[in-house]
Design a protein around this nucleic acid. Structure first.
Length: 943
RNA sequence: GGCGGAGUGGCGGAAUCGGCAGACGCGCUGGAUUCAAAAUCCAGUUCUCGCAAGAGAGUGAGGGUUCGAGUCCCUCCUCCGCUACCA
């Protein structure tokens, strides 16, 4: 028997259904959803629209929009959405204009992978997935303004994604702007400043103040050199980088998309490969991205993760003079260190296998051992490098002079040094660095301690505090002073300088895949890139029959196969500065999946604007002073999406297109909903349908092997087959019950185990609430004539507590308070008055909108309960006239005393000393002290 | 290894400032209703001893501060999440 049948058997009378059961829920929920839709109940106008009340404060409540996959929603997905929905409904009832939108993040690798596997075009699979998601989400009765819905794959949307790319492309980072913090400015201003002579071009091709030593004036550069300078300053630029190349996916990936040397999507091996790619100069924003974290209300763990991802390290660059190095490399080797104070302990040096010194040495000498090692190291994937922490390396046959000790130290090549960080070269100080220690031990290199370890220290490298030793002029200084002194000495002697390094790299933005936004860029016959004209946007993704990538060791963008699309003319593409008939080829890379999600929250403010990405007025109103009021989504986006979106927003802010420096004023991560899974002894997981359990549910065995497995909690996943589909739960209980259950499981931020049995509790609660209001024999409302004073008092308290809890996102305790109200009011023979019912329904409505709407209608109230005002409460009703207090004797509860709540301490004390049973307890004892905490307890100390 | 979070009944979880630990829900036990079951309703339900009144113990372990500690301090253990050869 299905849950549905069980619940409805006795209530399945003809005509108007009288009991609250699954059938009734599934009847009223779609009914009201249709009426809300038809009436536009959750439509929210913009400033200037008819009926828009500009005096109301705004509330922008945003969910991280989903990436629709073929599998549909599971019950974990809507958890955060239910939370935002409740808060947005509350805000609407408390007099706010509420922007609460939903849309689809639809470009990206998973959709394309799925399309390739099934042979169905990603445009079709994506549309199907979106339709499924929309249907499922609508069934929850969320108060989204669906008129603002869009997908990132809509040309009308990605037109502006491309437009933003062009703004970034046509911008440079002026380090002197913004009081020295630096800011993006239009590249036209840079060209104008150079042409006017207020900026000149430094030796590295960078703009410098006019008159700087060694600088050239703009007019002295030929057109190509000028172009090179400008292209070298763009915030979106072509750079050759060691990139993460994934042959299986046929694309390069951002560092953030590579986990343990494998692709985040699919888990395929990733190799490092030098490639020309589009990059964003996000590193220029490192300090601003760190500093602004203090201005926003985000979980501290997420702020910490972003800070560490950016990874600012203060230290020094030091140049070590090389002996016997190939002349073409130069005379010195530059390293970065965070511990310049330990330079006296630098007993050897290490360069990365990709370091230019290695190539120079290989060219100069036929060192076979070196060639072999470097070849192997370069071909090893990052994963292989990391799998074994065993140190490997070979000597380069070159030495360097340690400028502090004036001793020559050997230079090694080893793959524990990474080319991508610092200068790809280190001074190794085994005494103070564990990796160097391990390496020195492996190859029997000298170890010198330069910091005196604490007494009793018996480890290897010592990283702690202590006075410098074996360090000449630094001896005796603590670590911080020694660092400072060492940098002074390096600077004075011209051997080095203080320097800040970041772990963050420039953001690799191009992909070789089909399912993404095309770049608004064309290439001319000389190999120069040009922006397409803004009026020709969007550059529409061509519809390709053959969208399969070429699995290969060499990148081959899928779009290159769309020959008719690729080949065009400058005129066609709206390129300025080229003859209209000049042949150009379109950029065949596409943008990564992150592009669309970097600014979608702006588009919701004004989704149909065809003139601008968002109107200034709508942006200013909805983003307000500080940005989005509440953004809820999973913590897995702590560094990727949330960092990229902040970066785009800051560029747009600098260029004057948005009015807030940060997009998300308050961020909240909902916890994961977990489910049972089974684990073998080796920690590998077993799907739940391959396990048998005994009657008590204590012993579990894997069917195939008969081996015992342990029951654990794990993420819901298709492969473990422990996924619950919300459609089934709604069928068996209704969406209102599911909404309540997910909010009642525990604190929104916590990880929580799914337990279908627990849903009954919420279902019964709604049944009791229904019975409190509706006569099950007639279906009519049952209304008391006279209010019970206790129930009235409790209602005021419940309203106060629920309002507070909703704003704290403490929905579990809010629901508990409402259950208490129903339990108490329901045990009262006379039930509740029409007025009490009205207030109670409004109180409950953010949680169970359909249920309360139905009560609202049965009470013949006009309009929709969602548009009613939040019920008020009277402060005076929150206090009792009398309070019952506990009396403790020597820390143990020994009695109770009831006093007027206004009673003073002396009155309470004397009442407590005479309370039932207390005088007997105190017999033969001397009262030493009496502590009175009004309203709580009296503590008597006696001996 | 680093960073972050958490340990409370059989289970999920409550507990403003340190103030009656276990709200609320599940499950379980007993009862009502029923030919019977399901559903529903009522009562009970931290553990130990006790017929009971009651007494004692109790928030991962150990110590400390306090009239009073789940909450604050110290030492340790366990689990989870993120991250990782970043010089």
């Amino acid at each position: 028997m299905s849950a549905d049948e069980q619940h409805t058997q006795s209530g399945a009378q003809k005509g108007r259904r009288r009991r609250y059961d699954a059938r009734l829920a599934n009847e009223i929920e779609p009914k009201w959803q249709e009426r809300w839709d038809a009436a536009g109940t959750y439509r929210q106008g913009n400033p200037g629209d008819a009926g828009f009340d500009a005096r109301k404060p705004k509330f922008y409540g945003l969910d991280m929009f989903p990436y629709p996959s073929g599998a549909g929603l599971h019950v974990g997905h809507p958890e955060g959405y239910i939370g935002t929905d409740i808060l947005c409904r509350f805000k609407r009832m408390t007099g706010h204009n509420v922007l609460h939108p939903m849309g689809w993040d639809a470009y990206g690798l998973p959709a394309e992978q799925y399309a390739i596997q099934t042979g169905v075009h990603p445009a079709i699979t994506t549309k199907t997935a979106i339709d499924t998601y929309r249907r499922q989400l609508k069934r929850f009765g969320f108060c989204y303004d669906w008129s603002r819905e869009f997908a990132t794959t809509d040309p009308k949307y990605y037109r502006w994604t491309q437009w933003i790319f062009l703004q970034i492309y046509n911008a440079w980072f002026d380090p002197s702007a913004n009081d020295g913090a630096g800011a993006a400015r239009p590249i036209a201003e840079l060209i104008a400043a150079c042409a006017a002579g207020s900026l000149e071009i430094g030796p590295e091709g960078e703009p410098v103040a006019a008159g700087t030593d060694g600088a050239r004036v703009w007019s002295a550069l030929d057109a190509d050199a000028q172009r090179e300078v400008i292209d070298g300053q763009r915030l979106a630029y072509i750079g050759e980088q060691l990139v993460n190349w994934c042959p299986k996916l046929g694309t390069v990936l951002a560092n953030e998309e590579v986990i343990d040397g494998r692709s985040e999507r699919g888990g395929f091996p990733v190799h490092r490969k030098p490639l020309k790619q589009w990059l964003f100069r996000i590193t220029k924003y490192s300090d601003r991205l760190i500093a602004a974290l203090d201005t926003i209300d985000w979980p501290s763990s997420t702020r910490t993760q972003q800070t560490e991802w950016i990874g600012r390290s203060e230290g020094a660059d030091i140049d070590f003079a090389l002996n016997d190095a190939p002349a073409e490399f130069g005379a010195s080797l530059r390293v970065f260190t965070t511990r310049p104070d330990t330079i006296f302990g630098a007993t050897y040096m290490v360069v990365a296998p990709e370091h230019p010194l290695v190539d120079a040495v290989l060219q100069a000498s036929g060192n076979d051992g070196l060639r072999e090692y470097v070849g192997e190291a370069r071909n090893r994937s990052d994963r292989e490098r990391q799998e074994s922490k065993k140190k490997t390396g070979v000597p380069l046959g070159v030495t360097a002079r340690n400028p502090a000790t004036e001793k020559d130290v050997p230079v090694w090549v080893a793959d524990y040094v990474l080319m991508g960080y610092g200068h790809g070269a280190i001074m190794a100080v085994p005494g103070q660095d564990q990796r160097d220690w391990d390496f020195a031990r492996t190859f029997d290199l000298e170890i010198v301690r330069t910091v005196q370890p604490e007494d009793g220290f018996d480890g290897n490298a010592y990283l702690g505090e202590g006075p410098a030793m074996n360090s000449g002029f630094l001896d005796g200084l603590n670590v911080d002073d020694a660092k400072r002194r060492a940098i002074e000495w390096l600077t004075d002697s011209g051997l080095g300088r203080s320097r800040v390094t970041y772990r963050l790299r420039d953001w690799l933005f191009s992909r070789q895949r089909y399912w993404g936004e095309p770049f608004p860029i064309v290439w001319d016959e000389d190999g120069h890139h040009h922006a397409v004209g803004e009026t020709t946007l969007p550059v529409v993704l061509p519809d390709m029959e053959d969208f399969k990538p070429v699995e290969s060791d060499e990148p081959q963008p899928t779009l290159a196969k769309a020959r008719d699309w690729v080949v065009t003319t400058a005129g066609e593409a709206g390129v300025s500065g080229l003859p209209a008939d000049a042949p150009v080829r379109r950029e065949t890379n596409t943008m990564p999946g992150w592009a669309g999600s970097c600014w979608y929250f702006l588009r919701y403010c004004d989704p149909n604007n065809s003139e601008r990405l968002v109107s200034e007025e709508a942006e200013r109103y909805w983003m307000g002073e500080a940005g989005i009021d509440l953004y809820i989504g999973g913590s897995e986006h702590a560094v990727l999406h949330l960092l990229y979106a902040r970066f785009w927003h800051k560029v747009l802010f600098d260029l004057g297109h948005v009015s807030t420096p940060e997009p998300f004023a308050k961020l909240f991560h909902q916890g994961m909903i977990t489910s049972w899974a089974y684990q073998r002894d080796d920690k590998s997981l077993v799907p739940i349908d391959e396990v048998d359990s005994d009657a008590e549910g204590r012993k579990h065995t894997e069917r195939a092997t008969g081996a015992a497995v342990t029951r654990i909690m794990a993420k819901m996943s298709k492969s473990l087959r422990n996924v619950t589909n919300p459609d089934e739960i709604i069928e068996g209980y209704g969406a209102d019950t599911l909404r309540l259950y997910e909010m009642y499981m525990g604190p929104l931020a916590d990880q929580k185990p799914w337990n279908t049995d627990d849903i009954n509790g919420m279902f019964r609660f709604l049944q009791r609430a229904w019975r409190l209001c509706v006569d099950e024999n007639t279906g009519e409302l049952r209304v008391a004539k006279k209010a019970d004073a206790e129930v009235e008092r409790l209602l005021h308290r419940t309203i106060a507590a629920v309002g507070t809890d909703i704003q704290k996102l403490a929905f579990n305790t809010a629901i508990a308070r409402m259950i208490e109200f129903v339990n108490r009011a329901g045990s009262n023979e006379s039930k509740i008055t029409a007025d009490q019912m009205n207030r109670f329904a409004r109180l409950l409505s953010p949680f169970v909108p359909h249920f309360t709407q139905e009560l609202w209608a049965r009470a013949n109230e006009d309009g929709f309960i969602a548009q009613a005002a939040w019920p008020e409460f009277d402060e005076a009703m929150l206090k009792d006239d009398e309070v019952s207090m506990v009396v403790q004797v020597n820390g143990k509860v020994r009695g109770q005393v009831t006093v007027a709540s206004a009673a003073d301490k002396a009155t309470i004390e004397s009442a407590a000393l005479q309370a039932d049973g207390i005088p007997a307890r105190l017999e033969g004892l001397t009262v030493r002290k009496v502590i009175v905490v009004p309203g709580r307890l009296v503590s008597i100390v006696a001996n």
